[in-house]
């Protein structure tokens, strides 16, 4: 996965690539800090777990806020990926992951 390096690594280049926020549901503990950092992309469900809008981030400010949200997550549940990366999913990358022998 191409994770964007924090800040220093060529912000100008990064800003031209479509980037989105993704969440690892196995890590999210519902701290809710991400909601404060990136309200335009994050909401919380009724149990407090983050629901992420993973459409591409628009603009440099939004990207900067997203980066802070990723860094602020105590559970390291958030990540930034470029839109060229394969969609997150089970290792098999099957169309509809099913739990079947």
């Amino acid at each position: 996965m191409t994770t964007l390096a924090p800040r220093a690594a060529g912000t100008s280049v990064v800003a031209t690539i479509a980037v989105r926020v993704v969440i690892d549901g196995t890590r999210c503990d519902g701290h809710g800090i991400c909601l404060l950092r990136l309200p335009e992309r994050i909401s919380l469900d009724e149990w407090g777990y983050a629901v992420v809008d993973d459409t591409p981030l628009a603009g440099r400010r939004s990207l900067a806020r997203a980066r802070r949200a990723v860094q602020a997550c105590p559970a390291h549940a958030l990540d930034l990926v470029t839109c060229a990366d394969p969609p997150p999913g089970p290792a098999s990358a099957q169309a509809r992951p099913r739990v079947v022998g």
Partner: peptide
Amino acid sequence: PRRTAVPA
């Protein structure tokens, strides 16, 4: 299950 960006 794990969420992975790269297929197994």
